[in-house]
Amino acid sequence: MRRVLSDSDFRAGFAEMLPACVGLIPFGLVCGVGAVAAGASIWGALGMSAIIFSGAAQIIAAQLLAVGAPVAVIILTCVVAGLRFLMYSAAIAPYLRPLPPRWQQALAFLLTDQAFAAAIRRFDAGANPHAGGLHFLGAGFALWLCWQITNVVGYFAGNLVPASWSMEFAVPLCFIALIAPHFKSAPQIGAGVLAGVAVVALDGLPMRLNLIAAGVVGIVTGTAIELAKDRWTRR
């Protein structure tokens, strides 16, 4: 343990994530406030941040719990939003293959949008599996720690932030930061636009089913445009 904590790659990963942690502070605070709105105790709030450890899933769960949606709908919507982890897992797997299973299991738990982006950058820059794994561990640990602290602070003190600051706006901004760089090809833009239109058009659906329906519409649209494009260029 001590050897890991004093390792230079671990420390480099930890330090590299600190700016991203600063960016996640408002998001974590909003998640803490969301847990209050969902009627969670402090342990429930910590359970969400420590075990689910995904801002998008926590926001969805808090919103749906607050409107009294059934457990099955909450789980389904969170899991569809979490399908992006499958993609990250597939992309990072080749780099982690040489590591022992224990390392793979620990790193998988820390696989988030931000940690994934940082780790892929590191491995692409030619880090060996051991050094890259320690760097990933440091980065993931920094994010996990920052996430717990901000969620707890948000739970107790989030409501002290004046409403006029519109702190909740930080959440869509964090998501925008994640997806805007992808909006470069027709299928990606199509997926985003159609999902956005669908979520508004289907707002009448109960239990916020419009969220998952819009996600499916967007995924199908993106895939269909890509297939059509392939067929067109093959001619």
């Binding site: 569809v80 992006r84 994640l178 997806i179 992808h182 997926a191 993106g222």
Partner: peptide
């Protein structure tokens, strides 16, 4: 397309 679709819907 999961991130673009799901996150835009959020």
């Amino acid at each position: 397309y999961v991130p673009a679709a799901m996150l835009t819907a959020l």
